[in-house]
């Protein structure tokens, strides 16, 4: 196998491995819009990284964390519905990112690559970053699994069980920021949320426990990545959208086949 293809394969599978189990929480907690807000603002992180010469992954993760904190603060204002707040924010962030990218003239950057992903261009350094990020995300998810499921069911009950609800919310935010930073190279800012929610949704009909759903989401994601890449390589399709479409096929299949409580 050509080595660029191997790197692309590893990058895609690494991201999917972490995005699947995190994605089940995005689906359970109805936070797809939150994922959009974070991933759209990742573009700002990219521009920041390009302009300042900082490490790109750190710049993206940093901006995502700031945005997550801001959005969580906006959340606490009860007069606006959450989906509207997040909808406003995510498009504002996207517009701001696009304008910042065009203003940063003189700096050459592949905008399309950051919007839709350019996994075939990933370097060994990218692969290492993705696997470090995925390992960290999975470790934290396993460590706090019971508490995270507990607050997802009922925050008041979890709080009486001694779970720090605020800490878990912050953790969830940080994990989403990390996955976003890792995934932008693979599927691009516009499609990151798809990697979070589609494998999770496809896993639901086959699962009867929270853990089972997380594991199946990880598997569906890690299968979608090589199949999408193969399609992309074979028919010369854009790689990010190809991976997302393969995941969608799994989802459609699950609608027809899976029938479990």
């Amino acid at each position: 196998m050509e080595s660029f293809l191997l790197r692309a394969l590893l990058s895609g599978m690494g991201v999917a491995l972490a995005a699947g189990p995190l994605g089940v929480f995005v689906v359970w907690r109805r936070m797809a819009y939150f994922g959009d807000a974070l991933s759209h603002s990742a573009l700002l992180g990219v521009v920041l990284g390009v302009v300042t010469g900082l490490n790109m992954n750190l710049a993206i993760a940093g901006v995502c964390v700031l945005v997550a904190a801001f959005v969580t603060w906006l959340h606490s204002r009860p007069e606006l519905p959450t989906d509207a707040v997040l909808g406003i924010f995510s498009h504002a962030a996207l517009s701001l990112g696009l304008i910042a990218a065009s203003l940063a003239s003189g700096v050459r950057m592949d905008l399309m690559g950051y919007l839709f992903g350019d996994v075939l261009a990933s370097s060994w350094e990218d692969v290492v970053w993705i696997f470090l990020g995925a390992a960290l995300v999975l470790t934290l998810l396993v460590w706090y699994w019971n508490d995270l499921v507990n607050i997802t069911v009922h925050e008041g009950l979890a709080s009486l069980d001694g779970v720090s609800v605020g800490k878990m919310r912050v953790l969830f935010m940080l994990l989403t920021a990390l996955v976003t930073a890792a995934a932008i190279k693979v599927v691009g800012a516009l499609l990151i949320t798809a990697m979070l929610i589609i494998p999770a949704a496809a896993a639901r009909p086959f699962s009867s426990t929270p853990e089972g759903m997380a594991i199946r989401a990880a598997l569906i994601g890690t299968f979608s990545a090589p199949l999408g890449l193969f399609a992309s390589y074979h028919w010369d399709l854009p790689s990010g959208p190809a991976i997302v479409l393969v995941a969608c096929v799994f989802f459609l299949f699950s609608l027809g086949v899976g029938k479990r409580g």
Binding site: W28, V149, T152, V153, H154, L157, A158, T209, P210, R260
Partner: peptide, 22 residues
């Protein structure tokens, strides 16, 4: 609590729900 709305998207058995607490 007064009510607990369980979203069908979260697969959780009664036994597991009770054990979440301890």
């Amino acid at each position: 609590p007064q009510r607990l709305r369980m979203d069908p998207v979260l697969p959780l058995t009664v036994a597991r729900f009770i054990h979440l607490s301890a």
